[in-house]
Design a protein around this nucleic acid. Structure first.
Length: 306
DNA sequence: CGTCATTGAGTACTTACTTC
DNA sequence: GAAGTAAGTACTCAATGACG
């Protein structure tokens, strides 16, 4: 005898479990729409991107799967609206896929045989997309830029490092854990599923500021940082620099630090007083914004006299 | 002189995260 | 397994001084 329906009412069982303080975690399935409500601001489009690779070294390993989800969102609230397009493709890396990698994502040599990315297709897909989002963008950006140079021109953001998950009470910033906190479990590590999972996670509210994680990410993306190298610092100021979280660059033999742009004035004042003893000094400065952050390319720096 | 402990600087490892 | 970040711990090295 075939069982067509549940032998009980699933919805009421879940509702009852919740009253008993159980946490119900549902199987994750991608959504195509997150809100039907009118948006307070014109919608923009972002691309959520994830790669599966043969390993972790961007110089020697290859992308074997690329997933992209194009979503429209409200820039003032971080509310996601419709998923407009999805891209999911495998590609033969031209090398055997190590067993350790297959163990993570389940992708085998068999599965990629004869497959390849059509670069122009991907370029078309992201042509009018200004923001790329990845979980641990440092990882994905290196791989993607090496394979598809047009991604160098994009603004990138990282949902792992640019959202303060830990201080917002999420025990771990791993995608699987965050999705669990959103009420879902999944067998992750396939590119496009991870993208959908990330989108779901980005719709979580951050308790302390009562805004969506997506909105927090958008705010962080807007702010440029400044990497400064304090040139020719006197030896005896090393402890002061260290205490102020400067770090020693052994090759260049300089102390350096990342600050936000609006901290520059007070940083220069501190350096003048505490390090350079009111003498003229020079800083090498490089602007770090969404266009060069997480990229391997060398940024453009300038030397500024103070 | 030989041995041992101390000191400071610098290096190197360890741990804890994430991504594959 | 790699690699980045960051903080912390451990180790090494050379110099120094006390001591017998």
């Amino acid at each position: 005898m075939k069982q067509d329906t549940e032998p009980f009412d699933l919805e009421s069982v879940i509702a009852w479990l919740k009253t008993q303080d159980y946490k119900v975690v549902a199987p994750f399935s991608p959504r195509v729409a997150y809100s039907q409500a009118p948006s307070p601001a014109p919608l923009l489009k972002a691309a959520i991107l994830d790669v599966e690779t043969t390993g972790t070294n961007a110089l020697t390993d290859q992308i074997i799967e690329l997933g992209i989800v194009i979503v429209e969102y409200c820039p003032s609230t971080g509310q996601a609206y419709r998923v407009l397009e999805t891209y999911s493709e495998l590609a033969d890396p031209g090398m055997p896929i190590p067993a350790t990698s297959t163990k993570i994502h389940g992708i085998t040599d068999e599965m990629v045989r004869g497959k390849s990315f059509i670069s122009a297709e991907i370029e078309d897909l992201v042509r009018d997309i200004s923001l790329i989002i990845a979980h641990n963008a440092k990882f994905d950006r290196q791989f993607v830029e090496a394979r598809f140079p047009f991604f160098q021109e994009k603004a990138w953001s990282c949902s792992f490092s640019q959202i303060p998950w830990k201080s917002e009470g999420f025990g771990s910033a791993a995608l699987e854990h965050l999705l669990y906190r959103a009420g879902f479990h999944f067998n992750g590590h396939r590119a496009v599923v991870d993208c959908h999972a990330l989108l779901t996670v980005l719709q979580l509210d951050l308790p302390s500021c009562d805004i969506k994680a997506f909105k927090k990410l958008l705010d962080t993306v807007q702010t440029a940082d400044l990497k400064i190298w304090a040139l020719q610092t006197p030896f005896e100021s090393k402890d002061k620099l260290k205490n102020r979280h400067y770090r020693w660059h052994a090759e260049q033999r300089t102390w350096y630090k990342s600050i936000s742009q609006n901290e520059l004035d007070q940083e220069a004042t501190w350096l003048r007083q505490e390090v350079y003893n009111h003498r003229p000094f020079q800083l090498k400065q490089e602007i770090i914004d969404a266009y060069n952050r997480f990229s391997n390319r060398d940024g453009i720096s300038e030397i500024v006299n103070y």
